[in-house]
Design a protein around this nucleic acid. Structure first.
Length: 474
RNA sequence: GCCGGCAUGGCCAAGUGGCUAAGGCAAUGGAUUGCAAAUUCAUCAUCCCCAGUUCGAGUCUGGGUGCCGGCUCCA
């Protein structure tokens, strides 16, 4: 099956051709670790995870890198603003390096809760200062960058493709009144590669002078090169990264190394909340804990994100999250049902129409620019086919194999065990079930219901089926 | 001011110009149940408006309206 991906630079879907047969290298713009990432950030990271998983299901060997920006990402005005890390550090009255540690810890915990596979490396900007400096020197030597005192700027007029990714052009950018006035720069659209500021807390002494720190854009250029080389397959980020961040990366990397930088640029659309932008003033910037407080687990959020397409803006509401949570649980029940029908059967090679159709539709949907919505529909169609008819243990085993090894490989583990605190042990549940069974046998309905309420309160769902009483954790 | 995207049932959402417009959630009716839950069966949209192209348009073109985004920290 041919994989087609939408390339922001080409503005269309393109057949994916790896640089090296059977392998793919990708770089994702990760979080700036000054605050715990919010659910919008995680939409982008879940997309990166999905992309990797799809490649793996298709048999590719993936090398996945995600950076952690821990210096140089400025607030407000690009040249005069304060470093995000330092602003947060001052606010909390702690060392910026401490903030980095604290936020990183939260970040990795969130990744785990979301079932995101760890990338092969999470390089931090502060660990690659030498590489950045080296790259900036090359740009200066080649005439693409210039020094003004101890600051270094990239000359956007030296790269004729500047603006190609975002659709901006330099003349229009400079005509706009939004660019800050900075007498140091030759052109208003030039951007900083290296800045000097004595007051900056995270600073380095380099060939450019003392007390310097890197510009945000150069970090990704240097780190991606370090792990993936001068030219690699895929670079992703949120739509807001298109300009200026990725535009600047292309300029830096292609000017420094001569050839093409990245083959496919992929960007996720923003997550909206209640129909509008997430913003602190509206108090709708949610973290995974905020979702947890409302009774949802990280996997519900993951499933909600998977139900929409990454290139469509997605409106987050708790009602929508509730729907996703129900849908996910229904798939979990389906898997449990399959497990009970399949029993110990291990003949997973059995083929039959509903499964063949589902397999085909599932993969075809994903290969069409990761159409997860259609892929999930294929799974639900299979589910209803299965629920309707009588299927053999062999067929159930084959379907189970598909669910576990293909569907869950792409969408992550759907099970919700980790979402609840197991406050009640299995044997306690069994005891209560036995009490209720006795009460029912005695037709003591009030007592039976009381026990059931007790179980429900403990997060146990009781099912009275023709085959006896079954229970599972909600 | 300059760019770009989107507009499908109560909510979310897929959709290569052509049979009866995927799928999920919710809802309604029936089966089942001591009552529930779970399960199961069934029902539930003509695609923002106008004009055009076409044998045929949700799907292409033009106009309108609305929403969102980038150009400025942001995934």
């Amino acid at each position: 099956m041919e994989l087609h991906l939408y390339d922001t630079r080409a503005r269309q879907k393109r057949k994916f051709l790896p640089l090296e047969e059977g392998k793919v290298g990708m770089y994702h713009c990760g979080p700036t670790v000054y605050q715990r990432p919010h659910i919008g950030n995680y939409r982008a990271f879940l997309f990166a995870d999905l992309l990797r998983r799809v490649f793996e299901v298709l048999g590719y060997e993936v090398k996945q890198i995600m950076n952690l920006t821990d210096v140089g990402h400025l607030l407000a005005d690009a040249e005069e603003g304060e470093d995000k890390l330092e602003a947060q550090a001052r606010k909390d009255n702690v060392d910026p390096w401490q903030i980095v540690e604290q936020v990183s810890e939260l970040f990795f915990a969130d990744l785990s809760a979301l079932g995101i596979q760890l990338a092969h490396a999470y390089p931090r900007a502060t660990e690659y200062i030498d590489e950045m400096v080296e790259m900036i020197e090359v740009l200066v030597e080649k005439g693409h960058a210039y020094k003004v005192g101890s600051n270094v700027y990239f000359d956007v007029h030296s790269f004729d493709k500047y603006g190609e990714l975002s659709g901006n052009n330099i003349a229009e950018l400079e005509a706009g009144a939004r660019l800050e006035i900075n007498d140091e720069k030759r052109h208003p659209a030039d951007f900083a590669l290296w800045k000097t500021d004595e007051k900056h807390l995270m600073k380095w002494d380099t060939v450019f002078g003392d007390n310097g720190f890197p510009g945000w854009h150069i970090e990704c250029s240097a780190m991606s090169r370090q792990f993936l080389g001068d030219h690699f397959d895929i670079h992703t980020g949120g739509e807001d990264n298109v300009f200026p961040h990725h535009e600047c990366e292309i300029a830096q990397s292609e000017c420094a190394h001569g050839g093409k930088f990245v083959n496919y640029w992929m960007h996720t659309k923003f997550l909206q909340v209640d129909g509008g932008k997430m913003s602190k003033s509206l108090a709708n910037v949610y973290s995974l804990d905020d979702l947890g407080d409302r009774g949802f687990c990280a996997l519900d959020f993951r499933f909600l994100m998977m139900r929409g397409h990454y290139r469509s803006s997605l409106n987050f509401t708790f009602k929508g999250l509730q729907g996703a949570a129900e849908a996910r649980k229904n798939l979990c029940s389906f898997i449990k049902r399959l497990q009970s029908v399949a029993g110990d059967t291990s003949s997973t090679a059995i083929e039959f129409d509903p499964l063949n159709t589902a397999r085909q539709d599932f993969i075809a949907a994903l290969c069409d620019d990761l159409n997860t919505s259609a892929a999930i529909a294929a799974v639900f169609t299979l589910r209803s086919e299965f629920m309707k008819g009588d299927f053999t243990a062999d067929q159930a085993a084959a379907t189970l194999d598909f669910m576990l090894n293909t569907v869950q490989k792409v969408f992550g583990d759907l099970d919700y065990i980790q979402c609840t605190d197991d406050e009640i042990s299995d044997s306690d549940v069994d005891d209560l079930i036995a009490q209720r069974t006795q009460a029912r046998a005695d037709k003591e309905w009030a007592k039976a219901d009381e026990v059931r309420d007790q179980l429900t309160a403990a997060g146990i769902v009781v099912e009275d089926t023709a085959d006896g009483i079954k229970w599972h954790r909600a």
